[in-house]
Structures are given as structure tokens and as C-alpha cells.
């Protein structure tokens, strides 16, 4: 009976602690906040030239959600490496709490930083470009964003354990930033891509989160997109959990846990 409140407490405390640590870092706290603004402004300036206000709204909403991806791509890929450098990876592995459960709030904290960026981009678009994103169904819109945050965090969870053997994983994370922005339909409709690329887009949870946010904003039903986002998020989390177990077993067997 005490297990569920204990886990909930661990998730909350870890999320809050990580959020405070990330917020205090200039790279994660300030740059993740400012960085998407450069790209959002460029997108606004490009879309503004075609004279269609609807295109600007499209860019306004997409640029805002784009910050979630930015927040996860670089930081999640280097999450375990960072714990190694801090000398805390062994402690996390040795803790009685399952390792996968420790990683989840860390990546959720990273996407929470993306929520700051999302708010800043919406405000930036409104103040400088007069972009007002209409929200026809506020409750569903907020629900879409919350589901997107959690689904992107699950992607980050998978990313963090997938690249554990890659010493300079942050570089891989940097590399993933543009493909994510492109493939998830933040700034460009995925229908513009060749069919085989569209399949990759559909396999990424943020694509459906973005779709749900656009549909709820336009007053359409986002339930299918939301369901797909949740299912994909859970699938990524399941694969990440299995992978983290395998990676840990391998690291223990080869005594490579603390190697940097």
C-alpha cells in the first residue's frame, strides 16, 4: 500500500529537483528558452512574406511546440553521461528504485523546460508579429499539450538509454534537433514529404501531439491524434524500460558503468 505513494513522491521530488538544476544552468535554462526563438522568428519572417494570416498562425503554434523537441534532443541524449560526470550514476543504479523509474522524471523535467520556451514563443509571436493563436477548445488544447510533453519525455527517455555507449551523445542530440523539427510537422506539413519520410513522421509521438494541438485549436476533434500520441509514448517508454535493463546488465557485466 505504501509503494504507490512512495513512487509518486519519488517521481515528484526527482522532477522538481531536476527542474531546479536545469533552470539554474545557463545552457539548459537560458539557451533552451532563447534558442527556439531565433528559429521561430525566422519562420515568422518567412511565412509573413506570403501574406496569409492563417500561415502565420500555423507557424506560431508550430514554433511554440517546437521548443519541447529542442529541450529534449540535446539534454536527454547527454542525461546519463552527465550523471557519470557527476559521479552519481552508480548511486542511481544501486538505489532500490528501478532505474527506469528514476530516468522518467529527469526527462519530464527536461520537457518542462520546453514548456517555458513554448510560452515565450507564443508571447513573442503575439508581441512582435501580432500572431494570436485561436484556441477553440481550451481544455482539449491544454490536454494535447500535456500529453505532448509526456510523450516527448518518453522519447527522451528512450533516447537517453539508447545512446549510453556513445561518449559524445550530446553531439548526436544536437544532430537530432533539425530532423525532429522537420519531421514532426512543427513548421512544415508532413504531407509535403515523400511517402517514406511520412512514415517516419507518423512513428514519432510529437507529430501526433502537434496534430492534436492544431485540431483542438481549430475546434476539431483531437481524440484520435491524442490516442496515437499516448500509445506511441507508452511504446517508447516500454522499449526504453527494457533497453535500460539490458544496458545496465551489460554495464555491470563489463564493469563499464563509470567509464567516461
Amino acid at each position: 500500500m505504501t509503494r504507490i505513494p512512495g513512487v509518486a513522491r519519488m517521481l515528484t521530488v526527482t522532477w522538481w529537483l531536476q527542474l531546479k538544476m536545469l533552470s539554474a544552468s545557463a545552457f539548459n535554462g537560458i539557451l533552451q528558452f532563447v534558442w527556439p526563438l531565433f528559429f521561430a522568428t525566422t519562420a515568422f519572417l518567412v511565412y509573413r512574406q506570403n501574406g496569409d494570416p492563417a500561415a502565420l498562425v500555423y507557424a506560431g503554434l508550430g514554433s511554440a511546440v517546437m521548443g519541447l523537441w529542442s529541450a529534449i534532443a540535446t539534454t536527454a541524449s547527454g542525461a546519463l553521461q552527465r550523471e557519470r560526470w557527476h559521479g552519481t550514476l552508480e548511486l542511481l543504479v544501486a538505489a532500490p528504485t528501478p532505474f527506469a523509474l528514476v530516468l522518467v522524471p529527469i526527462t519530464v523535467a527536461m520537457t518542462t523546460i520546453g514548456v517555458y520556451s513554448m510560452g515565450a514563443t507564443l508571447l513573442w509571436g503575439w508581441l512582435l508579429f501580432g500572431i494570436v493563436v485561436p484556441v477553440a477548445s481550451p481544455v482539449l488544447f491544454v490536454l494535447s499539450l500535456v500529453v505532448s510533453v509526456l510523450a516527448v519525455a518518453m522519447f527522451g527517455f528512450l533516447l537517453s538509454v539508447s545512446v549510453i555507449r556513445y561518449r559524445t551523445a550530446w553531439a548526436l542530440g544536437n544532430m537530432l534537433e533539425y530532423p525532429g523539427w522537420l519531421l514532426c510537422g512543427f513548421l512544415v506539413p508532413v504531407t509535403l514529404f515523400p511517402t517514406w519520410v511520412t512514415w517516419i513522421s507518423w512513428a514519432l509521438p510529437p507529430t501526433w501531439g502537434m496534430e492534436a494541438a492544431r485540431q483542438s485549436s481549430a475546434g476539431e476533434s483531437p481524440w484520435l491524434a491524442l490516442a496515437l500520441c499516448v500509445v506511441l509514448g507508452l511504446a517508447y517508454a516500454s522499449v526504453a524500460t527494457l533497453l535500460s535493463g539490458a544496458v545496465l546488465r551489460s554495464a555491470r557485466r563489463h564493469a563499464t558503468l563509470a567509464l567516461t
Binding site: A55, A171, M175, L182, L187, L192
Partner: peptide
């Protein structure tokens, strides 16, 4: 990843952005 692949994706991102915006 940082200096050979990322710039190509930056080109693709903005080329598609331009196509989308016309």
C-alpha cells in the same frame, strides 16, 4: 553529426519551410 549532418538538415528544414510558405 555536428558539422556534416546537422547543416544538411538545416538546409532541408528551411528549404521545406520555404516550399510550405511558397
Amino acid at each position: 553529426p555536428s558539422l556534416l549532418i546537422a547543416p544538411v538538415f538545416q538546409v532541408l528544414l528551411f528549404a521545406y519551410l520555404g516550399r510550405s510558405a511558397g
